[in-house]
């Protein structure tokens, strides 16, 4: 299974994502420069975290118009698997591949800390090895992770089971205190209707090996490969 990691000017988690795929899955993985106009031949595309284009205008707003994004949008619309992490999630929102938008964190601070996530949907290729309600400890690091969508969109997200991760406490209780940034409905990650595009603010690549203090993030990468192997069979 071949992975591609998009590199925008200002991406800074691209090397971490590349490393995580190699270390956890031992699968081929390559960088894809933002000027490339094709993502052909890749089985999963990762949009990494960072500050693409310096977060100028709005986080992800300018990256969304880089040449590679047209290819990524086509790829996603054809059912290709796309994982956007942190800034990658913001780019997917700006590109319209996922609904909603990000606001500044409600405390106006850059938040860099471990969070607990409740897995709400285990039917995506990215969460297939999780069990419903499982709690994962995965760190966040962002200034604009305060997810927003209107009431109608939130209803649709719930109806279609598109809410994949919600901030919770260590015991898996979804509470206001466990919400680090003010996100609507404690949302930490959502997928599109078909489940082939996932955006999440927490960084699984930063906690995919025991040496990093937690390997809870590894389940995402392992899920992708397991889902792929199931699909190929």
């Amino acid at each position: 299974m071949k992975f591609g990691v998009i590199v925008f000017p200002g991406s800074n988690c691209d090397a971490d994502c590349l490393h995580a795929v190699k270390a956890v899955l031992d699968q081929p993985v390559e960088y894809i420069w933002h000027k490339s106009n094709s993502v052909d031949g890749f089985d999963c595309i990762i949009l990494p975290g960072g500050f693409s284009y310096g977060d100028y205008l709005r986080a992800g707003a300018i990256a969304r118009f880089s040449p590679v994004m047209e290819a990524v949008i086509n790829y996603a619309q054809k059912g290709g698997w796309v994982l956007g992490i942190c800034n990658g999630f913001q780019v997917l929102l700006e590109a319209g591949l996922l609904p909603g938008a990000m606001r500044r964190n409600n405390n106006l601070q850059f938040i860099c800390q471990d969070t607990y996530l409740k897995v709400e949907n285990c039917s995506t290729p990215f969460t297939a090895l999780c069990h419903p309600g499982e709690v994962l400890k995965i760190p966040v690091a962002h200034g604009e992770g305060n997810y927003y969508c209107d009431e109608k969109t939130l209803k649709e997200l719930k109806q279609n089971n598109q809410i994949v991760f919600r901030y919770c406490d260590e015991m898996g209780k979804v509470t206001g205190e466990a919400n680090p940034n003010g996100s609507i409905n404690n949302i930490a990650g959502i997928c599109n209707r078909h489940g082939n595009v996932l955006g999440m603010m927490p960084h699984p690549e930063r906690c995919a090996e025991e040496i990093l203090g937690s390997s809870d993030g590894a389940v995402l990468f392992k899920s992708i490969l397991a889902s792929w192997q199931r699909r190929v069979k």
Binding site: L57, A61, F65, A101, D150
Partner: peptide, 8 residues
């Protein structure tokens, strides 16, 4: 298209 995000 770019300067404002119509969602918010």
């Amino acid at each position: 298209k770019l300067l404002a995000n119509p969602v918010i």
